[in-house]
Design a binder for these strands. Structure first.
Lengths: 240, 240
DNA sequence: AATTATTTGTCCGTATGTATG
DNA sequence: CCATACATACGGACAAATAAT
């Protein structure tokens, strides 16, 4: 945390996301907050501007600064996404996130199969080989797995999808410890463990992309993420 | 545009998006900008905080405020998205956006088929009936079409997808005039015109959701958006 | 319909923090 | 280690908008 207003953004933002401040609530007015928190009004005002850009609050003259409904939040802001994921109350949010992955990552894989340049292909190949050599090594696998998916993503040549999925993955990594905690009593982790079986699931994706078979790449990526979703639903008892 | 810092955000933000300020460029320092633009340093600083939250710039003490690479931008911020769409240079960005729709909207349709409550279903039904009555009326169709897709979206019960697609649609509406301009020399508009043929495409989606056939709903929504994508590719000559 | 009170918005003089040369 | 250049932080004053009276 670099400066005071960033700190304040974090404090207030997290309180909003965890509904310590609920939508409709009024935040303390600038002067009060300034005094209470022992920071200048400048700092408070800048923090409110940031929170406002995140869609968490809206300032109105005379009426004060009010917390906005969840539908207005900027979910793809890394801070917001991380705060939400860190909050226990949003356990089914992980399922929702996975549904987005289910929408975007197979699409990205299909696009990669279509658009990958020679250079993209060699990066995917290299990442895949690292994956193969990481079977059995938990830590090495995690890193290789990340790079493998990253190389496919980049090959999609769709900046919007690349950016969105990267934000999503960063947020998941940020809050991973907590999630591992929640899942450690279950036989399967939502995060890949470096077994032969899981490796096979990656191989078919790799093969499909190399063969430039868009629909197969889409299908196999869907299968991989669907597995994660099923595990999450089992863990959190989410259904319908 | 309400206040001065919002104005400044718009001015600077648009200049960054249209690469009048390119990634790596240094923005004028706070005091200079303040003097040049005849606003207080407060206003400049607050604007920079907002731009920083949008991922467009990063401020460093002593080094000044630098424009960030596109990969760092917060694409799902409505302002950023609108500015990008308004910029002629990003014509293939519309295709990228459509690829995201292709990832998310069929997913939302499938989820709607799975999760829609009775209340959701009746809203979808009502929106569909309005659609049917709007055939031939350009203006009424646009509104009914919007509400039809909105009702499906809401029935997905995935806040993240709802929020993302809504942002996307708002941005498209914001910059629609320009796009219509670009497409009016072509036989088909990327936006639905109220013909029987287009209505049929909506009917099959409606039928699939009512029947709670997830895969069919996904498929038919894919078909609908794929049509838009093909038209865009024809218009902008995007390929590979 | 006019006035007032309250809160954000704006300005600016000054001081401190931080990385660079 | 000092000087420089920039962002960051402080706080008193006033302007503008708008909810409440």
């Amino acid at each position: 945390m670099k400066n005071r207003s960033e700190q304040l953004v974090h404090d207030l933002g997290k309180k909003i996301v965890t509904s310590e401040f609920a939508p409709g609530d009024l935040l303390p007015k600038v002067e009060d907050a300034s005094e209470m928190l022992k920071v200048s009004r400048t700092v408070v005002r800048e923090a409110l501007r940031v929170l406002s850009t995140m869609g968490l609050v809206r300032s109105n003259q005379r009426a004060g600064t009010v917390v906005l409904p969840r539908s207005d939040w900027q979910w793809w802001n890394l801070d917001v996404l991380t705060w939400v994921l860190e909050d226990d109350k949003n356990s089914d949010f992980l399922v929702h996130l996975t549904e987005v992955r289910l929408g975007l990552e197979p699409t990205a894989a299909a696009l990669a199969a279509k658009r990958a340049s020679d250079h993209d292909m060699s990066k995917i190949k290299h990442a895949f080989e690292r994956l193969e050599q990481s079977i059995g090594d938990e830590k090495a696998w995690a890193s290789a797995d990340y790079d493998f998916h990253e190389s496919i993503l980049q090959a999609s040549h769709n900046d919007l999808i690349i950016n969105t999925v990267k934000t999503l993955r960063k947020a998941l990594v940020n809050s991973r410890e907590k999630t591992l905690e929640a899942s450690k009593n279950f036989p399967e982790s939502p995060y890949d463990s470096p077994t032969q079986e899981v490796f096979k699931r990656h191989r078919v994706i790799y093969d499909a992309i190399i063969a430039r078979d868009e629909e197969l790449a889409r299908q196999k990526m869907t299968d991989l993420i669907l597995r994660v979703k099923r595990i999450l639903e089992k863990i959190y008892g989410f259904q319908d």
